[in-house]
Design a protein around this nucleic acid. Structure first.
Length: 473
RNA sequence: GUCCCGUUCAUCUAGAGGCCUAGGAUAUCGCCCUUUCACGGCGAGUACAGGGGUUCGACUCCCCUACGGGACGCCA
């Protein structure tokens, strides 16, 4: 039997990191076993499902490289099939009509909560038939009484739940639409899903689903409930923890390789290995190695991985990805040095593409103003003389390249009998406006001779103004 | 409240009864490299939730407690 897994999100929002990891695990499992990965959109909640959300989910999966072999299948397109199954359950006594009002159910729930018991439907309509069978009603699955259901979970092991804990759940609403627990069972059955890998929050649903499957005479798939992802403070992951949407990570300048690598290591590990290529994940991943405990999302480790992949990736490719981030800052990289060269210079200095764009702005436009601390420290009157000398040296260069620039700076330092730092650091601040940049030679080279001289003049004016100010006091 | 699940450094994790003086990674701090920032190298501190058993021996097995998470919907 070939392995068939699925990812079945409900389109009520964006693809978030928790869903993405579940999808990744399902995808890896299918790929590892040479099986199929199916995408199914669970859109039976007509109120909350939106086409925008469907697009967001598809976009997120595409970006992460989680390709599916079948689908997307939409549950809203399968209502006839669900009706058929519901009728079948009705016919063989595994389901019944329920005419209880919402008010009655709410009241029942409250009473039971007050009595400190688990809220459950009391089976009222099972015993009392309505006068008019066509009056508005829902359809309930008739859950077995007594005994217990064993969920043989690949991650949790054997989980037993007593049938007395389960009540007769609604499988069709008053408006005729089927509910989740019914559709998921029918779909997994029809789509021949062999392994249901999903979030831990569904563990409680498994026994009810197994009961429905039994009533249908179908075999249950193998279940694997993966633990949830929590925020960095250990509480349920939410927007207040920062980015939760997969696409937001792209906007913030993360590479899909980094996010995938981060996600695969959350709740799963293979010895001490931290870096995994997709092929390695496929060959090494195993459900048996997935942890039972929930894990906290840690952005700092994600950033480390992102930097790792930025360093490892071909600069030309990084440049392509960086371009839109430059654009967001109002910079057109075609009006300046080759972006690929800029990437090479910055590759080891940025955790994200967004950050790389930020620290690369000065290659393309003059800085707005000096970084205060850097200017205060480096653009002092004592820096004036070396700065004037270096300006002369740079201005006289007829060949503008890293080697000639290097020699020029070196010679000035030697002539003044000072360390390189005394010359290079004020020069850096003069040219880039702040204290940090790539190597001084490559920086000057990429900024260009004309812009360098212009900015040095600006720094000299700054130093002079400051000297006058000091003298005046 | 009831039921289900979980608990190793701040965080992700290794650990399948003696290999554990509990290993790796991120983060933090220090040193080295260095014209800055990074990268890289080296090093430091930091954990088996608590209590009972079982055993010659428990991070590993069992029980209880505490804490955390999930479910209890005409949501999925």
């Amino acid at each position: 039997m070939t392995v068939r897994t699925r990812f079945a999100p409900s389109p009520t929002g964006y693809l978030h990191v928790g869903g993405a990891r579940t999808a990744l695990f399902s995808w890896l499992y299918a790929r590892k076993h040479g099986g199929q990965f199916v995408l199914r959109i669970e859109d039976t909640d007509l109120e909350r499902s939106t086409p925008e959300s469907v697009n967001a989910i598809l976009e997120g999966m595409t970006w992460l490289g989680l390709d599916y072999d079948e689908g997307p299948f939409y549950q809203t397109a399968r209502f006839d099939r669900y009706d058929e199954i519901i009728q079948q359950l009705l016919d063989n006594g595994h389901a019944y009509r329920c005419y209880c009002s919402k008010e009655r159910l709410d009241e029942l729930r409250e009473t039971q909560m007050a009595a400190k018991t688990k809220p459950r439907y009391d089976g009222h309509c099972l015993k009392n038939k309505a006068d008019d069978p066509d009056a508005p009603h829902v359809i309930r699955f008739r859950n077995p009484v007594g005994g217990s259901v064993i969920v043989n979970d690949l991650i949790r092991g054997k989980v037993a739940i007593s049938n007395d804990e389960l009540d007769d759940l609604i499988i069709r609403r008053t408006d005729g639409s089927p509910t989740y627990n019914l559709t998921v069972v029918v779909d997994d059955m029809d789509m021949n899903i062999t392994h249901v890998i999903r979030g831990d929050d569904h563990l409680n649903n498994a026994p009810r689903q197994i009961n429905i499957l039994n009533a249908l005479g179908a075999e249950a798939p193998v279940y694997a409930h993966v633990p949830m992802i929590l925020g960095d403070d250990g509480s349920r992951l939410s927007k207040r923890h920062g980015a939760v949407s997969v696409m937001q990570y792209r906007e913030e300048g993360f590479l899909p390789e980094a996010l995938i690598n981060y996600l695969v290591r959350l709740g799963w590990s293979h010895g001490d290995q931290e870096i995994f290529s997709i092929d390695e994940m496929i060959s090494l991943f195993d459900i048996d190695d997935v942890n039972k405990a929930p894990s906290s999302f840690n952005t700092e480790k994600l950033e480390w991985l992102n930097q790792h992949y930025i360093k490892e990736t071909d600069p030309a490719h990084i440049a392509t990805l960086l371009r839109p981030h430059m654009g967001k800052l109002g910079i057109d990289p075609s009006e300046g040095p080759d972006l690929v060269e800029v990437v090479k210079a910055q590759q080891e200095r940025a955790n994200t593409l967004e950050e790389m764009a930020d620290i690369s702005q000065f290659f393309y436009k003059d800085y707005d103003e000096f970084d205060e601390k850097a200017a205060k420290k480096n653009l002092r009157p004592v820096a004036a003389e070396p700065m004037i000398k270096i300006r002369e040296a740079l201005a006289s260069l007829s060949e503008w390249n890293e080697a000639t620039i290097h020699t020029a700076i070196h010679d000035v330092a030697a002539a003044l009998d000072v360390k390189m730092g005394k010359v290079a650091q004020p020069l850096r601040v003069a040219v880039v406006g702040r204290a940090a940049s790539p190597g001084i030679d490559i920086t000057l080279f990429l900024v260009g001779q004309e812009a360098c001289l212009r900015r040095i003049d600006r720094a000299l004016a700054y130093i002079e103004a400051r000297a006058n100010e000091t003298a005046a006091n």
